[in-house]
Design a protein around this nucleic acid. Structure first.
Lengths: 145, 145
DNA sequence: ATACCACCTAAACCTGACTTCAGGTCAAGT
DNA sequence: ACTTGACCTGAAGTCAGGTTTAGGTGGTAT
């Protein structure tokens, strides 16, 4: 059993954030000691680990809350929890795809300014993509579609 | 030359957002017609394309503004613009890495709930990772570190 | 001439995810 | 007795990135 201050240090989260998560219903199993003090057990810590992961994946607080509620409802909600993770898997995959495309555009811009610095101007940009090095062409094409 | 309404349709951005970008200094070259009406030329449209990309990469409005200002300052700022894109390239790469890790965790959870549905309970989770299928073990290990 | 449409501004409002504030409880140390 | 430190609460504040509102201008169609 851990106090809020200890958990704050363990997870590198401000105490205010832990209280906020509790208030928002992200820690449904959280226990209060006599005189109202929060006590985090192993299950609460596991909840925090899951919250950390779901937040990194871009999930919103209210959806994380729904998941935590399902967890506290037992085996009847396995299917819903699975569907939630399957949807989140797709969300993450499409985010990665989007970032890959953005990365190509940014790599193109790196090439572009490297060349502009060499030349001292951007005149080369006037007759693109014909004048492009072959390894840049596919970047250029995809960056502008 | 396009009106704000036309540009709004072309970029699928609300008019209010275009005005907001202008107010925040993201469109330094924007021209006003007699009687104060915004007119978007090819350069403004190219700015909007760049803004779209930089936003997708997760850059903040104030940093995009800085970039746009550098663009309007000519060849003296090529180096700064290059450095900005190089930094942004790294940001995107580490975001992708982070999402890959999160994806592994989410894939593990998909497997976990698929199994829980099969079994009707989560008892199998008690003696993990020993009881894990070999193809899940590496996921499990990485998901919890 | 009046109705309508697309445009304009400043300022207030909104959402999500926190953070800060003002004031209160309680156990332990001096 | 009193101060200190760790905890508690509800309410207000913050920040980014817009959106909405209220009121106003100017050109064209009936």
């Amino acid at each position: 059993m851990y106090s809020i201050g200890e958990v704050s240090k363990m997870f590198h989260l401000p105490i205010s954030t832990l209280r906020y998560y509790d208030k928002e219903g992200l820690l449904p199993g959280l226990i209060r000691e006599k005189s109202n003090i929060r006590k985090f057990d192993e299950r609460s810590l596991e909840s925090l680990r899951v919250i950390e992961c779901l937040k990194k994946s871009g999930m919103e607080i209210k959806d994380i809350k729904q998941f935590m509620i399902w967890c506290s409802e037992g085996s009847a909600t396995y299917q819903k929890r699975l569907e939630m993770f399957q949807k989140q898997k797709q969300n993450i995959e499409s985010k990665i795809d989007q970032l890959q495309k953005t990365l190509e555009m940014v790599e193109f811009k790196c090439w572009y300014y490297t060349r502009a610095i060499e030349d001292g101007n951007e005149a080369f940009a006037e007759n693109m993509p014909d004048s492009l090095p072959d390894e840049i062409k596919p970047l250029y094409i995809r960056s502008h579609t």
